[in-house]
Each structure stands twice: as structure tokens, then as C-alpha cells.
Design a protein around this nucleic acid. Structure first.
Lengths: 155, 155
DNA sequence: TCCAGGTAGTTTCAAATGCAACTGATGTCA
DNA sequence: TGACATCAGTTGCATTTGAAACTACCTGGA
């Protein structure tokens, strides 16, 4: 191997996009988990399940996995927690005994209504300091990345 | 509670920035971990340690934690793996017996040189379709988010 | 009717994670 | 000097995780 006058530039981890993406995402997730946990005793998977049920009303677990980008094991465990806490109710499907329809209970709806404003506040914190242009681009870029990197139940 | 003609808009998880950020980052990380793992038997923490050592030569573990955004436990374990694999060497500091200087071995340098191009390729896949300007904005946005959400050893 | 193959959801088990406690060493300040 | 806080790094332990196996059920032929 010959020494060239112009070598490849050294690799800078701190400028490596996948690394930066991971650091930013994990820090935000950590902060959010702390807050959901402190305020409502919920984990992020549990909150995601509540979020989609709050929006769609009744869903079978299979639909929750699709709409939360979590795998079915994670959903199954989050559902069990939420059921134990009285935040959701499960009903067997009349026609297909494999299906369980899941829906927020009264208490779950109350919790959902309380959490949503907090989630919006936290999102505002993340976005704070970004220009509208940056925000739009960030959303677009995240969408493209998620498309280009599909994942079954990948979070 | 009174029904208003204009209610708060429903909460859409799929538009929630923290969620999108997490999904994108985790999918990219997953893909990368698969590739590093298949090609070199490295985990992401191990690769991060190699990356900073490849750039800075010799560092004590403490510096690695700072430069990889990982906590010291994760660094400690990654270092042990890499040492066992013969990718790095450890030397006690002459003046301070608490410090261990870590550096890539010959084999480690070879692996580093082989991995860097692969990492660049994967980064190119992530940013594919973005203009230089968009990329700069994305970097700026991620930087601002990471600043606003500091974390000790948060990944 | 029967069965091969598919689906919904749970369980099992091993690996990854992270906090807290720990060891050994150094700094500091009276 | 000596007592005590601090630092580098490791270990213990409980929690989270996910891949694969498993149970129960359904469906579409033959």
C-alpha cells in the first residue's frame, strides 16, 4: 500500500449521522420515559399503546403492533401491564377466538386525556429552537429514513 | 365538561416527533448492527470504541465514554470484548494507577480501516436523496436536539 | 371431513442494559 | 500527616429486550 499525498479523511464519530441520530433519539426517549414514568407510571411502550387506542378506539393487538412500530411481544407485555392497571379492557371477538379487541377503560381515557397535553409540551420542547424549515426537513428526512429502512417490529 | 365546536385535534402518534425520531434511529441502528455484526462480529458499542480509538490513537476509558456518549459500564464491557478479540491493547498509566490507556492493536487498526468505508457507505444510504443543504439542516437540527437534551452517558 | 399451513398472541430463555454498590487509587485540606 | 471526598473502572443484580418456540385457533383446499 502506497502512501498518498491526500489520504482519506479520518472518520469522525461525532459527525456520523447514524450516531447523531441515535444519540438525539435516545436522549429524547430517556427524558420522555422519565416524565411519563414520574407522572403516570407508564413506560414508552405502554404510552404508545394508549396513544393508538385513544385515537382509534378499539383495536386488536395485531393492529397495535402495526401502528406503534413495536413487535408483538412488546405490545403483549404493555397490554398486560395496562390491563392490570385498569387502563384498558379486553374483549374476545365473537367470530374469531384468536382476536382480542382492546380499548381504553374510563380510567384509561382519563389518563390519555391527561397525558396528551404533556406529550405535546414535550414535543414542543424538542422542536424549540428549530426553524420551521428545519422542522419540516427533519420530518421529511425521518420519513424517508424510516421508509428506506423498514423493520418488522422495529421500534 | 362542555362539548366545544372545535375540539383539540386528536393525538397522532405517527406524527409525533419523538416517536418518529425513535423509529428512524432504531431502524438505522438495527440495520447497522446487523451489518457490523455479520461482517466483523462487532456490536455498535464496540464499533464506537474502535472509531474513537482509530481517530485519537490512545485514550483512557474515561475519554471514550465522553466521546461516544455511552456510559462507563457500556464502555468497560465493550473494551473487554475488544481486548479479548485482540483488537485493542491496554497499558497502565505510569503516574496514575487508576488510568488505563487504550489503543487499537495492529489487528484493530486493520479492522478499523476495513470498517470505515463500510460505515461511510451505510451513512450514504441514510442520507440518499438529501441535498447538501438539507443534510446540513438535518445535522443542525439533531445537534440542537442533543444539546437541549443533555444526558450523562446517554447513548 | 380432514389436514397443512397460516395467524394471534403468549411464554421461554438468553443477551443487553443500567443503576447502584464496590474496589482501588488519588487529591485535598486542615 | 491523616481523614475524607473524589475519580477510574468493574461487578452485581434487577429490568428490559427480542428471537424463537409454543398454544390455540382459523382457513382453504383435496
Amino acid at each position: 500500500m502506497q502512501l498518498m499525498s491526500s489520504e482519506a479523511p479520518e472518520f469522525r464519530l461525532e459527525d456520523f449521522l447514524p450516531y447523531r441520530l441515535s444519540v438525539a433519539a435516545n436522549r429524547v426517549s430517556r427524558r420522555f420515559a422519565d416524565r411519563y414514568g414520574a407522572a403516570f407510571g407508564l413506560s414508552i411502550p405502554e404510552w404508545r399503546v394508549m396513544a393508538v387506542l385513544g385515537r382509534f378506539g378499539r383495536l386488536p393487538a395485531r393492529e397495535i403492533t402495526a401502528r406503534t412500530a413495536m413487535d408483538k411481544v412488546k405490545v403483549s407485555r404493555a397490554v398486560r401491564q395496562l390491563e392490570g392497571r385498569g387502563f384498558l379492557e379486553r374483549a374476545a371477538d365473537a367470530a374469531d377466538a384468536r382476536l382480542h379487541w382492546l380499548a381504553l377503560s374510563e380510567a384509561g381515557q382519563g389518563a390519555h386525556a391527561a397525558i396528551v397535553p404533556m406529550a405535546r409540551e414535550m414535543e414542543a420542547e424538542v422542536v424549540q429552537g428549530l426553524t420551521a424549515e428545519e422542522l419540516a426537513l427533519l420530518h421529511a428526512a425521518l420519513g424517508r429514513i424510516a421508509e428506506r429502512f423498514p423493520g418488522e417490529g422495529v421500534d
